[in-house]
């Protein structure tokens, strides 16, 4: 059962994400090309993996002559945070058939998670919305990777037109959206501080993003405690 309106809203909500993916996917395509991946392989990787940080790591390890095993282990670490993201989304997906919800979670990323969770605050989750949002974002990721792999040598600097700020701007806006009560703001602030602190003390956590996992778990726990008290 496809609900057209929900599907369209999902597609529309994906536009800012696609805008943010353009420079990132493009850069991945260019780099993939440079380490000797074909256009097909670069596109295939974006289709089958859909993990920005993970794909950059793969390129980095390949460049350094590292092993496949290293790439896979690093990716396992980088993607662990999605266990947490996906779990926190489950309570919102009551009205989506489980098999469909599972399939559509293929397209769960930092960005689609943030946009979807913002919407689920005051709208019911539907399979159509998930499909519109996740598939459109994924198509944006794949096509920008392909464009990068094909055109890589011609265009160099997307920083000039400010596109490098698309994702930070989106995170800022979604942060404003998801903060509903004082305890949310406190949790976000604590998590941000811890994230930077861990990243500063243990720089290696920045690369695999484990600082986000640790900071989130501590901040959410403090959030429960704060919420009980006040």
């Amino acid at each position: 059962m496809i609900k057209n309106e929900e599907l369209l809203t999902g597609i529309k909500d994906a536009f800012p994400i696609v805008l943010g993916y353009l420079p990132l996917g493009f850069a991945f395509g260019v780099l993939a090309n440079q380490v000797g991946m074909t256009v097909f392989q670069a596109g295939l990787m974006s289709l089958m993996c859909f993990t920005g940080a993970g794909q950059y790591i793969a390129i980095g390890v390949m460049q350094a002559g590292g092993a496949i095993f290293t790439i896979i282990m690093a990716n396992l670490l980088v993607n662990l945070r999605y266990l947490l993201f996906a779990t926190s989304m489950v309570p919102h997906l009551k009205n989506v058939p489980p098999s469909l919800a599972t399939l559509l979670s293929y397209g769960l990323t930092d960005e689609t998670y943030a946009v979807a969770m913002t919407r689920y605050q005051n709208h019911e989750a539907t399979a159509s919305y998930m499909a519109g949002l996740n598939i459109t974002s994924h198509i944006g990721w794949i096509s920008s990777s392909l464009a990068g792999a094909i055109l890589g040598t011609f265009i160099s600097n997307t920083d000039k037109i400010g596109l490098n700020f698309a994702l930070p701007a989106m995170y800022i806006c979604l942060l404003v959206f998801v903060v509903g009560k004082r305890s949310d703001a406190l949790v976000a602030g604590i998590s941000a501080t811890l994230c930077l602190l861990f990243g500063f003390i243990f720089p290696s956590t920045m690369a695999n993003m484990s600082n986000i996992i640790i900071a989130t778990m501590i901040a959410a726990t403090l959030g429960v405690v704060i919420d009980e008290r006040y």
Binding site: R81, L84, F85, T87, S88, P91, D110, Y113, A114, M117, T118, L167, P168, Y171, I172, L174, L175, V178, V179, S183, D184, A185, V187, A188, G189, I190, S191, A192, T193, L194, C195, L196, G199, M206, N211, I212, A215, T216, A219, A220, T221, G223, V224, D227
Partner: peptide, 20 residues
């Protein structure tokens, strides 16, 4: 459920801080 409800603000706080 309450704990999970704080995951989104925490994740976005972290992502925003790191991206900036």
């Amino acid at each position: 459920q309450k704990w999970l409800s704080f995951v989104a603000p925490a994740v976005l706080g972290g992502l925003a801080a790191l991206s900036i």
